[in-house]
Simulated scan of single mutants.
Amino acid sequence: MLRAATENDVGTIRRLRNQQANRDVSITSHEITADEHAAWWAKTSVDPTRRVLIYTRDGTTAGVVNFFDLDGTTGAWGFFLDADGLAERGETLPAWIEIMREATAYAFDELGLELLTGEVLEHNTVVRQMNRRFRFTEGTPETLSAGGREITVIPISLRKQDRRKGQST
């Protein structure tokens, strides 16, 4: 289930984002400080082109979905899961499929987008495979310098008419 994030979720969002597994596959890989996170939330929570959603599974917060650059027909997204908690419970794969299914449905059915975009790091082959299962297409990779490391970022996109809808992945 997805629901809008509130002020009460800010600490949980930071804790999940700072899990090593999530930092390893993010462009910004350093540990997010409390002040940095508070500044992000202060800006994000009032930005009409953004939505931050909490993904819950069996009543427990299990991930965060970020939509940004929303303009009515297009938008970008990203998400991260509670990698540590889901791994402990043996629920990573089903949660991953569920959050992607719910987030893409939200993008197209709730936000009314025609095109959903995002980015994935080249070395994140597991996510790239899952993106393909959900019919995202990859664009031209770009090499960037971020946080003292060189990374290759691949843009992804999914058009509304190309999505998997009501199908098992």
Rank of each mutant, 00 (worst) to 15 (best):
Lys43Val: 01
Asn124Thr: 05
His30Arg: 09
Ala87Gln: 15
Val126Gln: 14
Asp69Leu: 08
Asp69Met: 08
Arg163Gln: 03
Thr125Trp: 02
Ala34Trp: 04
Ala62Tyr: 06
Gly75Ser: 11
Glu88Ile: 11
Ala83Arg: 14
Thr152His: 12
His30Cys: 03
Glu88Leu: 15
Thr125Tyr: 01
Arg23Lys: 07
Phe68Arg: 13
Arg128Phe: 04
Val64Trp: 01
Val65Ala: 11
Val25Thr: 15
Arg101Asn: 09
Asp84Phe: 07
Arg159Cys: 10
Thr49Ser: 15
Asp47Arg: 12
Glu150Leu: 13
Phe68Ser: 15
Thr125Asn: 06
Arg3Val: 07
Glu36Arg: 08
Gly148Trp: 13
Phe108Glu: 07
Arg163Ile: 05
Arg14Glu: 07
Glu98Lys: 12
Val126Ser: 14
Val25Phe: 09
Leu16Trp: 01
Ile97Gly: 05
Phe67Cys: 07
Val65Ile: 07
Gly85Glu: 10
Ile13Trp: 02
Ala42Tyr: 00
Arg128Ala: 13
Glu110Ala: 14
Asp9Gly: 01
Ala42Cys: 00
Met1Ser: 14
Gly147Ile: 03
Asn8Ala: 15
Asp71Ile: 09
Ala34Gln: 10
Ser168Asn: 07
Lys43Pro: 00
Asp24His: 07
Asn131His: 13
Phe79Val: 01
Lys165Val: 11
Thr60Phe: 01
Arg50Thr: 14
Ala95Tyr: 00
Ser145His: 14
Thr152Gly: 08
Asn131Val: 04
Val126Met: 12
Lys160Glu: 10
Glu102Gly: 00
Leu115Ile: 11
Asp24Tyr: 01
Leu113Met: 08
Phe68Pro: 05
Tyr55Thr: 03
Gly59Gln: 05
Arg57Leu: 15
Leu70Phe: 13
Asp109Trp: 10
Thr125Leu: 11
Val46Ile: 13
Val10Ala: 10
Thr49Asp: 09
Arg101Glu: 14
Pro141Thr: 10
Leu53Ser: 08
Thr74Cys: 06
Glu150Trp: 07
Lys160Met: 03
Gly85Gln: 10
Gln161Asp: 13
Asn131Trp: 05
Asp9Arg: 02
Phe80Gly: 00
Phe67Gly: 06
Phe108Gly: 10
Val126Tyr: 09
Leu116Ile: 10
Val126Arg: 15
Ala34Glu: 15
Lys165His: 13
Asp35Glu: 15
Leu158Glu: 03
Arg163His: 01
Thr33Cys: 05
Gly147Pro: 04
Ala5Ser: 07
Lys165Ser: 13
Ala105His: 12
Trp40Ala: 05
Thr61Tyr: 00
His30Gly: 11
Ile156Met: 10
Ile99Leu: 01
Pro48Ala: 04
Ala62Val: 01
Ser157Glu: 13
Val153Ala: 14
Pro155His: 14
Leu111Gly: 03
Pro94Gly: 10
His123Ile: 04
Lys43Glu: 09
Pro94Met: 06
Ala39His: 01
Trp40Pro: 01
Glu142Pro: 04
Glu114Trp: 13
His30Asn: 05
Met100Val: 08
Leu113Ile: 09
Gln161Phe: 00
Ala62Trp: 02
Phe108Pro: 08
Arg128Ile: 07
Ile97Ala: 12
Asp84Lys: 12
Val10Tyr: 00
Ile32Trp: 14
Met130Lys: 07
Thr56Phe: 01
Thr117Gly: 04
Asn131Phe: 09
Ser45Val: 05
Arg23Gln: 06
Arg15Val: 02
Ile151Trp: 02
